[in-house]
């Protein structure tokens, strides 16, 4: 139990070791790093816990058949559109998208639609777009948005083309294990 816990935190602990070294050798770097890590922790706490609560609820309340109908293979343009909207309405960094993707996969969403969600989450998130408009101006933000939408579709299509059916199976299997899906 303790051994398993220790192993999963091995990477985090080795980064902590770097912090300890920095505290003695490069005090200024250490201070800024701690400050950034603290604000990063706040950002994570602001976003991640409610996402996991919503995911748990989605898992329990939305039947597999319903999600498959709306986002599964054969859900067509509507399924893709839903994936795009879900991803764009999201908040928080890309790593928040992976657990969402896992639950959707375990509930029968198609691989292509999940890839669309990841793409949308990474670039067309509405809160981020508003920020970009404000900071960098409309020409910058709009040009990037217009280029990004076809690219998200293209990247999803490309990944689906190069990842074998068997591997997609494995990815789905892992998502089911991870979410403990009762289907």
């Amino acid at each position: 139990m303790v051994k398993k816990l220790l192993r999963s935190y091995l990477f985090a602990l080795s980064v902590v070791a770097v912090y300890v070294v920095l505290a003695f050798t490069h005090r200024a770097v250490f201070d800024t790093a701690v400050e950034t890590a603290v604000s990063g922790t706040w950002e994570m706490l602001a976003i991640i816990p409610p996402i996991f609560v919503l995911l748990g609820l989605l898992d329990v309340w939305v039947p597999r058949e319903v999600l498959t109908r709306y986002m599964g293979p054969g859900s067509g343009i509507r399924g893709g559109f839903i994936a795009f909207v879900l991803g764009s309405a999201a908040a928080g960094p890309l790593y928040g998208a992976f657990p969402v993707a896992a639950v959707l996969m375990s509930k029968g969403a198609s691989f292509f639609n999940v890839l669309l969600l990841i793409g949308a989450w990474s670039t067309t998130k509405i809160p981020m777009l508003l920020f970009e408009f404000q900071a960098l101006g409309a020409p910058f933000a709009l040009t990037r948005l217009l280029l990004n939408i076809p690219a998200i579709i293209g990247i999803a299509w490309l990944i689906e083309a190069v990842v074998s059916r068997l591997e997609v199976e494995r990815i789905y299997e892992r998502s089911r294990l991870r979410t403990g899906a009762t289907s």
């Binding site: 990477f11 902590v16 912090y19 201070d31 890590a37 990063g40």
Partner: peptide, 14 residues
């Protein structure tokens, strides 16, 4: 993994 990422990013930004 989240914790490791947050700590790593702190060093990078610094």
């Amino acid at each position: 993994q989240f914790i490791a990422v947050i700590l790593l990013v702190g060093i990078m930004i610094a």
